[in-house]
Design a protein around this nucleic acid. Structure first.
Lengths: 273, 273
DNA sequence: GGCATCAGCCTTGCATGCAGTTTGGTTTAT
DNA sequence: ATAAACCAAACTGCATGCAAGGCTGATGCC
């Protein structure tokens, strides 16, 4: 046994069912144990089982996945390279907590990358591929009954599925990475997910892709991603649990006027600094 | 000591002067030993001291940099995540050898990303930043006398310098990564580097940025990168040492001409051993 | 009572050791 | 002589052990 104390940090985070699942994505990670941990952690992150800021001690990870710290450490390094984890020297790794500006930048990048995807794909999809896309959207539809986390993951994976049809490893990788990053930001800034419109937009994109109308697809994808970003990032700062100092600011100075809600949050809220 | 055989693989690769240099770039890598090795290796790769396909045994790396295999391994993992190194299970890591299609895709992505950069930067640069850019181009100019490798590196770093002025960590990172990848492909497919035009184009971009004419800058950057890509990737396939089968094809049927060059050494020797 | 100091544990940083896989040369059988 | 089999060295995959740095709670001082 190697755990000392931190094991508890992860135990409650909902790992029960995603240990060895390690399904597709693409091949952002290898096929070895490191890759397994990466996929499991990423999935936990994008499904919000691990919220931004959650601690990821090497010991606990290693114990949980039945590997040594060495491997857990390596996996954290990979996830850090993908921007999902923050690694500070001599400190416990944590799930990344992108700022609002970073989130916005990620969406901007994503829009450009996915423009490349649909530009290349428009009119070049096989019948089987179109069927696969439609099946995925059907799965999204079905998942509306389930938890939001799954809907969000499926919506993200729709875009990754699209990218994977380009057969361009680089494009696939960057789209995957940035899509996951965007997905991560949703858990930070987005209000309860409303997926119905996204699903319709996905269907529209598929139709336009099948019709081969490149310009239309590009426009559709752009507005789709833009609206996703807008829904997610509407308020320049809606720090859920991000900055303890900001959260507690309203409570800080009101020893007297107990009923008041001092909107200190506007400070970094409006200015979006 | 820990080297067994492969130590020699790297000794001849020109590491003498780039061990602990570990200059800026941005913060693609950490500040620790792993980051040091990453930066050194990346620099060796983009300066073509390590050609695509060169072997990178963990032992040799560790010995050369005075660290254990663990660290060397981690560094290789990071570089693999950035696409500069290829990692196959149970096999020696090698410098990445992107296909022509991948190279083209990398340039396409780069064009989009750098469009974001200049769009954001146009008209928003301080006097000091403009001076810094001009100084960099001057350095490029000065480096024309030196080896091509340095010119290529400086040209790449001009773009990274631009990106770093956006203050968007994500954009900086992706531009850096993809720029390095493109730089790597130059050593595969490009003919002897001709840098004079690139330098002029860089100056033009700076001027347009300073003038704040966003559309002009975007167009300039686009044509600049496009021409770089064209110069580099003009011939859809010019495999320098890539495909052993292709290289040896001419030699296949001539047992008679014995006085020819003893190509045995170039087989795997040209790259690493 | 409040604040600075400090000690001990938790955690990371890194090296080393062992086991399994690949490699390339040698041996052996045809 | 050729090709299959084999064997030893090299290399990777991974776990473990030790030292150093950060965090937490306790102690002492103001």
């Amino acid at each position: 046994m190697q755990s000392r104390r931190g094991a508890g940090a992860l135990v409650g985070a909902g790992f029960a069912d995603l240990d060895m699942q390690a399904t597709r994505t693409t091949d952002l990670d290898g096929n070895d144990k490191v890759g397994t941990i990466c996929r499991a952690l990423r999935r936990a992150i994008i499904e919000q089982a691990l919220e931004p800021g959650a601690k990821l001690p090497e010991d606990a990870l290693g114990e949980r996945f039945g590997v040594s710290r060495t491997i857990a450490r390596h996996a954290l390094g990979q996830l850090a390279a993908q921007g999902l984890v923050e690694l500070r020297r001599n400190r416990i790794a944590v799930v990344a907590t992108p700022s609002w500006q970073e989130a916005r930048a990620a969406f901007d990048i994503r829009i450009e990358l996915e423009r490349l995807v649909v530009r290349q794909l428009a009119g070049n999809l096989s019948r089987a591929q179109i069927a696969e896309l439609k099946a995925h959207v059907d799965a999204e539809e079905a998942a509306r009954a389930g938890p939001d986390a799954v809907s969000i993951r499926l919506a993200t994976e729709f875009h990754i599925l699209l990218a994977s049809m380009t057969n361009s490893p680089i494009l696939i990788r960057y789209v995957s990475e940035v899509a996951y990053r965007c997905c991560l930001t949703l858990s930070l800034y987005s209000r309860p997910h409303s997926s119905e419109c996204a699903i319709n937009e996905h269907r529209a994109i598929i139709d336009a892709l099948a019709a081969g109308k490149a310009d239309d697809v590009i426009a559709l994808m752009h507005t789709h991603l833009d609206s996703v970003a807008s829904r997610a990032l509407l308020s320049p700062a809606k720090p859920r649990e991000r900055d303890l100092l900001e959260i507690l600011a309203p409570y800080a100075a009101d020893e007297s006027g107990a009923g008041k809600v001092r909107r200190k949050a506007d400070l970094n809220g409006g200015a979006s600094e």
